[in-house]
Structure formats: C-alpha cells, structure tokens
Amino acid sequence: MTEQPEASPERTTSPERTTSPERTTSPEQTTHGVGPWAGERPDDPRFDPKLLDEGDTRNVIDRYRYWSMEAIVADIDAHRHPFHVAIENWQHDLNIGSIVRSANAFAADTVHIIGRRRWNKRGAMVTDRYQHVVNHPDVETFIAWTRERGIPVLAIDNVDGSVPIETYDLPAECVLLFGQEGPGLSPEAIAASDAVLEIVQFGSTRSINASAAAAVVMHAWVLQHVKF
C-alpha cells in the first residue's frame, strides 16, 4: 500500500459516525442483516459489543458482521490494492458518492477529491467510512502529491488522442483520474496526466455515466493485476 497523505484538516473522512437530524436510523442500515448474537460471545476484539447486543444491519459483507468499523478498516488496509482514484469536484457532481462506493468495493488505496472540499455523499451509501478519502484544493496540489511519490496519473476521458484502456497495460501503482459528468476532465488535469485513456464504446452515445465509467476502469485494473 502506498504512503498515505499526511493527516491534516484536508482528510474528509472521520472514524466517528454521524447521523443526519432528519434520520432516525443510519443510511447504512438495510432491510437485511443479522439479529443479536446468539450463544457464547466471541472473544475477539474486532467484534463490537453494541452490535452483538442489538444485531448488525449494516451494508457489509458477511465476513464483517458484528465487527467494529475500525476493525473493518484495519482489515481492508491489510489488503488494499495500490491503485488510487481521483475525481475533480468543481460542480458538486452527484456521481462522486457512487465512485467512492466502487472504490471501496474494489479496495482502492485512496480516493482523492480535487477541488471543493464538500462532496455529495448520497451515492456512497456510507462506504466512505471504510475508504480513505483525502482532499486536494486544486489540480496543481494533487499533481504535486503524485509527483512526490512517483505515482503515474492516468486520465480517463474520451478526448482526441486518448488510448483504449482495453489495450493499455495499467501500472500496478497508479492514479485513475476522472472528471465531472458532462464537461469531463479539465484541460489542466489532462495536460498534467501521464496518459489519457478511454473506454471503447459501440453504441450511439458519446459517453457513459461518470460513475459507471469509473467502475469499468477499476475493474479493468483488477482484471490485469488480481489473480483469481
């Protein structure tokens, strides 16, 4: 796993849970889950006593049932993949939350939000609690962070000169950089990237949804680097 950015006020995630005043339950709760623990309590510090008492309705895989959030994050940290995901955030794009959710599903190292510190978390479905998310105020600051660590930046956009991702050898350690829905990546971001890749399409539409594109690209990385 690559070095994490230094802890600072820029980090947008917090280990503490927050509940919106309008909600009486966490947005992470689902209609599925497990009830209170039956039988002898497990002697394992990863288990959360409150969840053992009340049950676990969170949107987590079965392996993590009853585990505390901190224990889940620590376990994912032990096997995170070395690719990063970066998203420009100039227009409070609704897709960002969904991209964070996909990054969590594919165990991305870190998600980098470039631009506005506040981002729409609705689509994340609380997965940002288990995913490292940091903020960079502008493209220049973000690129400086990647250059200091020698991590190549791969822009994803269907602009002139872009290379099909289907034929590109993705580095194990890299940043997959995505733009906003509609305008795509800023010229500054494209100019600073080490390569510009596109997803080959076969229909009439010029582009696909930003969050869908991000999931496709992350899975492309998985297919190249994860042994099944």
Rank of each mutant, 00 (worst) to 15 (best):
E3C: 10
P5C: 11
S8E: 03
S8C: 09
R11T: 04
R11V: 06
R11Q: 14
T12N: 04
T12F: 03
T13V: 05
S14A: 13
E16Y: 14
E16G: 09
E16C: 05
P21R: 12
E22V: 12
R23F: 14
T25F: 08
P27Q: 02
E28A: 09
T31A: 09
G33K: 06
V34W: 02
G35Y: 03
W37Y: 08
W37H: 09
W37P: 04
E40V: 07
D43E: 15
D43T: 07
R46P: 05
D53I: 05
D56R: 08
T57E: 11
D62K: 15
R65T: 14
Y66L: 08
A71G: 02
I72C: 03
I72Y: 02
D75C: 00
I76A: 01
D77H: 06
D77F: 01
A78E: 05
H79G: 01
R80L: 07
H81V: 03
P82M: 10
P82I: 03
F83L: 13
F83W: 07
H84N: 15
A86Y: 04
A86R: 10
I87N: 03
I87W: 00
I87K: 02
N89P: 07
N89F: 00
Q91E: 00
L94N: 00
G97C: 10
G97E: 15
G97R: 05
G97N: 13
S98E: 15
S98R: 01
I99L: 13
V100H: 02
R101E: 08
A103E: 05
N104W: 14
A105G: 11
A105L: 04
F106E: 09
V111C: 12
I113K: 01
R116V: 02
R118I: 08
W119N: 08
K121M: 14
G123V: 00
A124E: 06
A124M: 04
M125S: 15
V126I: 05
T127Y: 12
R129M: 06
Y130W: 15
Q131F: 06
H132L: 13
V133Y: 05
V133S: 11
V134C: 13
P137E: 05
P137F: 00
V139N: 15
E140P: 12
E140N: 14
T141G: 10
T141M: 02
I143N: 06
A144L: 01
T146N: 10
R147Y: 02
R147C: 08
R147N: 12
G150F: 01
I151Y: 05
V153N: 09
A155K: 09
I156S: 09
N158R: 15
N158V: 04
N158Y: 11
N158W: 13
G161W: 06
S162L: 12
E166S: 14
Y168F: 15
L170R: 06
P171Q: 10
A172Q: 12
E173H: 03
L176Y: 04
F178I: 03
Q180D: 11
E181H: 11
G182P: 13
G184W: 07
L185T: 06
L185C: 00
S186P: 00
P187W: 14
P187T: 10
E188G: 09
A191C: 03
D194V: 07
I199M: 06
F202V: 03
G203W: 06
S204Q: 14
T205R: 11
T205V: 15
S207E: 13
A213T: 03
V216Y: 11
V217Y: 04
M218P: 00
H219T: 12
V222S: 02
L223E: 09
H225C: 09
V226H: 02
V226N: 06
K227P: 02
F228N: 07
